[in-house]
């Protein structure tokens, strides 16, 4: 399955997202103390920026619909290897603190070595374990970076 979007449609989606972001920030800024120009409150600057962003987002939407008729081409999105990389990153992030760096790193590297480098599962797991060990030695033991230890945490 391959996801593709016409270029103008993509710009339209980004414009909508920016408009929503501006709306969200603007609404929250109004809830803060806005003050006035002589004594600006914490909400004034974000409110001004949100208003400007909303204007620019509308201009983007107009631009996107205007170029709709022009042949802007289609943009392929999230092919399978990109999707795998994103999902692995999400899995590793979820495991990072709860299970510790070693397991998170092993999961990330093994899946990606399998999916991107085409290694068979046993070799991918072995390569993942070796690379994790090297990273642990380099960053934790040598450079003193504090990473979650997971099952290695002393009880």
């Amino acid at each position: 399955m391959k996801l593709a979007l016409e270029h103008w449609r993509g710009e339209f989606v980004v414009g909508c997202a920016l408009l929503a972001t501006a709306g969200g920030f603007g609404a929250l800024a109004i809830d803060m103390s806005v003050g006035d120009f002589a004594m600006p409150g914490p909400g004034l600057f974000p409110l001004l920026l949100a208003a400007l962003l909303a204007l620019v987002a509308v201009a983007l939407l107009v631009r996107a619909t205007r170029v709709r008729s022009a042949a802007t081409g289609r943009v392929d999105l999230l092919p399978s290897n990109v999707l795998v990389a994103l999902c692995s990153l999400a899995v590793a992030t979820a495991l990072f603190e709860s299970s510790g760096f070693l397991i998170a790193s092993m999961a990330l590297l093994s899946i990606l070595f399998r999916a991107l480098a085409g290694l068979a599962w046993p070799r991918a797991t072995l390569a993942g374990a070796v690379a994790t060990g090297v990273a642990w030695m380099l960053f934790v033991q040598l450079l003193g970076v504090q990473l979650p230890r997971g099952f290695l945490t002393p009880v």
Binding site: L89, S105, L108, A135
Partner: peptide, 10 residues
């Protein structure tokens, strides 16, 4: 790519 992703996380 996997190694760079891991270093980014660290």
């Amino acid at each position: 790519a996997p190694c760079v992703l891991l270093i980014s996380m660290i």
